[in-house]
Design a protein around this nucleic acid. Structure first.
Lengths: 128, 128
DNA sequence: AGTAATATCAGTAACGATTACTAATTTTAT
DNA sequence: ATAAAATTAGTAATCGTTACTGATATTACT
């Protein structure tokens, strides 16, 4: 099970790192294919899963039925625009304490939380 | 487009109301079929979607790849056990203010948030 | 460098959840 | 009772994702 180097995995990671939006597997596939035309969609999925298991990227589920991926693994929150579907990073004060709030009086052990915000993004609120 | 009464929809709603867990479409299907053997899975899906559009139930996406449904539409949060997969209601102090925190300095308009907590539930932490 | 072991690949088939289609049935207003 | 329209059962199709397979690439060891 020792990990071996792979050009495909490297390119997928590199592509994700140069994007500040949060591409889906299909978007990764389309783009990496520009430089490496015969990469397979299965390879993209396999490596995205592997990279997220390794903790090198984060898998984002924002309720739109498609997984998004983020090479920025530092803790931060996301905003999903209900108009255009974009997923944007939020710069905000920590809300980590909500895990403690939820844990108060709870029987089990809370390991963490998933939170995302939704609404209308800056672009979509602009008059046109 | 006027809504017409349907026994199927009524039974789906009634079933959801008598459950305090948060069944998936398939679980609804299995159970309603006990009383109404030739209901169709498509009918279950269609009515679950319709009911949630009407605001009579809530569709829950807790990252396990399957939608769960909740007849309790009052604002509350959920806990997902990573051991047994159960989805449980949390009774906790309001954390509504996180929407304001997220909105501070944000360009667009934040309409709301989705949050769920995960970890190990009371049952699964018990020694066995 | 050459070779063997094995991780990874491309390509494609399969999968599970959900949605769309269609002709038949129910509901509701007249 | 009748007609218009919503709803249904049943099934086919869709979509994102995962699994399979024989070929290729990477690494460890001579």
């Amino acid at each position: 099970m020792a990990l071996k180097h792979s050009k495909q995995r490297e390119m997928i990671k590199a592509f994700l790192m140069e994007r500040k939006d949060h591409p889906t597997a299909d978007v990764v596939y389309m783009n990496v294919r520009q430089k490496y035309p015969n990469i397979s969609l299965g390879t993209v999925y396999r490596n995205l899963t592997l990279l997220s298991e390794l903790g090198e990227i984060t898998r984002l589920r924002v309720g739109d039925g498609v997984d998004h991926f983020d090479a920025d693994t530092s803790p931060h929150y996301h905003f999903v625009c209900t108009e255009c579907g974009q997923v944007i990073d939020l710069e905000m004060e920590s809300i980590e304490k909500i895990t403690d709030i939820a844990g108060a009086g709870f029987d089990g052990r809370i390991a963490g939380h998933v939170t995302y915000f939704y609404g209308t993004c800056g672009n979509c609120t602009k008059p046109n």
